[in-house]
Simulated scan of single mutants.
Amino acid sequence: MKALVYYPSVPRYLAARALGRRYPTAALPLRLLELPEPQPPPGWVRARVRLAGVCGSDLALLLGKNSPRLSPFFSFPAVLGHEILAEVAGERVAVNPLLACAERGTEPCPACARGEEGLCQNVAGGGLAPGMLGYHRDLPGGWGGWIVARPERLHPVPDGVPDRRAVLAEPLAVALRGLRRAFGANDGPRFPGSLLVIGAGAIGLLSLALLRALGFAGRLDVVARHPRQAELARRLGASNVYAATGDALAAIGARKYRPLWGPPAYRGGYGAVVEAAGSASSLDQAAWAAVEGGTVLLLGAAGQINHDFSPHWFRELTWVGSYTYGRADFADAVRLLGELAGLEELVGPPYPLAGWRSAIAAARARRVVKAVFTPGG
């Protein structure tokens, strides 16, 4: 099968970062190779990949922006791709890419025992190499024609859901998990009166759609840098869309103060902020955009960031981090796909694997919110 394989390379990292603005795919450590089709271990099944997404964490990996302290929990070289829509015996399935205690042949750790497999304590142990599908040296991810997985990781897609919406199941589960951690789930979510989403990429826009689907009827503002993102945010239920966080804070009545040097400080702001951009500047803005005593939800994988922590204690903020999902989060995200009409607009036209340079360039330039491959043809 054809597959895009990532090979770690420090020289290529440096070259890619130096040339990235002008030549967005120059020196990236990817190779399009012909590999044997994977054979499922006993009790596993093989699935043909229909669509596979390009995640922000994939781009961060390719550009060397991930924290080296996370390196023990992944294994390379690897066929990338953890946002996977596949097919088994003619049935479409969304693939949960986690490789937790059940796959590793270990006794369930405390996290897995309570269904929190995204927090598995054996993610680097047991009978498999470290990592999950898409970050695993032995089990291919979705940027290849076939994957293997345990049957319970394959979730049938609801009838009527188009492929370009179904491929969003994994990032939708990320957003759902984060919102549940920040605002509760078991006894119904406890939302603040106002909420700001910083970053209108896939995770930010999915969070916006989910907040409305989960019943948040308050002021829900979005900071979007690109016109297409702003258009989609309005369609998905944003109250207001701003080009900059400062504009949002001015509109909600936060008071602005000028320090001796550097960006401004604020009093007042939003009851909660979803930080979905994953940059140093967006994290700093989120810290000052939440009202005193408010909540900041960090979604996804931001990588290494230098950050001023003074607003954390000065404003008595609650910080919630969320990276993957539990068993129920993924299942619920797949079910919600049937209710979230229009999400497919986030997904651009699919690229063949041979067009990977165009796909990566489109994702980096934000010409599409979500770039996807058609690895299985």
Rank of each mutant, 00 (worst) to 15 (best):
A18F: 08
P41V: 10
L51M: 06
A89G: 04
A60S: 14
L14H: 12
P68Q: 14
E87I: 05
G20S: 11
L19T: 11
A52H: 02
R31H: 02
A47W: 07
R46Q: 15
Y23I: 10
R17M: 14
S67W: 05
Y23G: 06
E103I: 00
L59M: 09
P24L: 05
L35D: 07
A78I: 02
R46H: 12
A18R: 08
Y7Q: 11
F74R: 12
A60V: 05
P40L: 10
P8F: 09
V10D: 14
A94E: 02
G20D: 12
T25C: 11
V54A: 02
L4Y: 02
R31N: 01
L19C: 11
S71P: 03
G56F: 05
A16R: 06
S67H: 14
S67I: 04
A15Y: 08
V79N: 00
A26I: 08
Y7G: 01
Y6H: 15
R31V: 01
A26M: 07
G20W: 01
V5Q: 02
P38H: 14
L19D: 11
E37I: 15
L62H: 02
R31E: 04
V54Q: 05
P36N: 13
G64H: 09
R50K: 14
A52G: 06
L51T: 05
R104Y: 08
A15K: 14
G20H: 01
S67D: 14
A94N: 06
P40N: 06
S71H: 13
P40F: 13
L98S: 01
R92G: 03
E91R: 15
